[in-house]
Design a protein around this nucleic acid. Structure first.
Lengths: 257, 257
DNA sequence: CGGGCTGTTGAATACATTCAAGCCCCGTGG
DNA sequence: CCACGGGGCTTGAATGTATTCAACAGCCCG
């Protein structure tokens, strides 16, 4: 059963390691509405540069936000991916969520004035940064900006509703299936490939997030593969029978997002 | 081990069923900031009545929001409690969250224009209703209102971060312990009794939410009781050793909210 | 007073974890 | 360029834990 193939399912293996990560265009970025308000489409297109740092690179393993740091900005993932976690008494980390291109990071820091968790890049990534201390440059456009922000926050609240579905599942099979579907739905939301994609996180991270042992996650992937529901090669996944996966997850007729 | 006592740990059993539920004062309600903007403390105190319906009663089992309904308002729990759920393909319901006095319901419906899940009262409750279609009466106060709303949304995003801690836990003991702590923290947040309280939801609901069997939840409660960590009599709970419960949950030094 | 619902308890089964080993990929250094 | 070694991932067998099935107790309601 060990794959003889490389850790990529692309036709040109070597090239794939050089290939750029998925990048969201501004139009499908969660920050877009706010960027637009800030001048992207306005007569003063430079205004945006005062509050939005664009496409800042982040190296793998680097922290964009440290738990407990003072709130000052929110980030949009432009390319790559991130995990957020808290550190437990034991020193172990508990993964809270993953973030993918187009999604916003740091919103939960706004109300309390500090970020509740650490945000770490899972791969070479890039982010746009929106500086909250400079919002005054928006002047009377602030109201429109706020509306966009409210929308982004509400959207996020809605997405968070996936979590109980993920975790509330009784068994490992359901949880793993739902996890894959939630990833796929999140990718689709921002017009990224949602059937055949790369898992940016390790099995260890997935297990941590799902509350399972690493070995169990591995076994579930193999089980799904043997059922022809998907194909796994290392971190590359192709969903072959999404409907069947939805049945296993028990979600069948619940719409994502 | 069966309790000989009634389903209440209060000195005057009969009276307790007549006793009013916990009620939050406006000052510790999640809607407060918005109410204030809307005129609660302003020269025109009646303005608020145009957009906020106050203390509307809700009977046990009654739905405040039906899944899929068009978004139009948000609710603040004034007294009582609610559960939200989605209905799965099988017809089973998956509980998404519980809501307690002072907390806001319906925020996730804002971005998409419809509510993603059903909201049902677990007991006789009351809510304040904020009508979004009438926000124009706020005039130039809208900006301030939006700021309050943003704050509420961010707070909610932060609270949602509890969920992976709840569910990401490997075993039933940790999950149950974390569940109790999260309830306690949510009560404390709105200045309600957080050490000795009544679980408004059934064991079945708890099990559904935590992804455990009902029997397991029951056994965990008994186990904690035998360890002198808490006292349970039916739905009444008193946390006797919160620190020890935190240790079991593995949260020890993570701060709530 | 009886029936149904909620919650508890016990025993057998099924499931996930743990422990242990090995493979593959990839980067490092010879 | 190849050998070595480490980390990530998979696989197998034994243990432990949660679920399932079954039964019963207490409470609420009619």
């Amino acid at each position: 059963m060990h794959t003889k193939e490389r850790d990529t399912c692309c036709p040109t293996p070597r090239a794939s390691s050089r290939r750029k990560n998925n990048v969201v265009e501004c139009e499908s970025c969660g920050l877009y509405g706010m960027c637009k308000v800030a001048g992207l489409d306005a007569p003063v297109p430079d205004l945006i540069d005062e509050i939005v740092g664009r496409r800042e690179p982040v190296a793998v393993g680097q922290n964009v936000i440290a738990a407990g740091a003072t709130f000052g900005e929110i980030y949009a993932v432009k390319s790559g991916s991130f995990k957020t976690y808290v550190t437990m008494a034991s020193g172990e980390q508990q993964i809270i969520d993953f973030y993918f291109p187009g999604e916003l990071i740091g919103l939960e820091g706004l109300s309390e004035g500090s970020y509740p968790h650490t945000v770490e890049a899972l791969e070479a990534s890039s982010v746009c940064r929106l500086d909250f201390s400079k919002l005054n440059v928006l002047g009377e456009r602030l109201g429109e900006f706020q509306k966009q922000l409210i929308n982004a926050l509400s959207k996020r609240a809605r997405q968070d509703q996936w979590v109980p579905l993920l975790m509330g599942a009784q068994n490992a099979e359901q949880r793993t299936a739902t996890f894959l579907l939630s990833l796929s739905a999140r990718f689709a939301e921002h017009e990224l490939p949602s059937v055949r994609f790369k898992l940016p996180m390790s099995r260890h991270d997935i297990a941590n997030y799902l509350g399972l042992a690493v070995e169990t996650v591995s076994r579930m992937f193999q089980r799904f593969q043997s059922m022809d529901l998907l194909e796994v090669h290392g971190r590359h996944v192709e969903l072959r029978d999404i409907d069947a996966i939805r049945v296993i997850a028990g979600l069948n007729n619940i719409n994502a997002t």
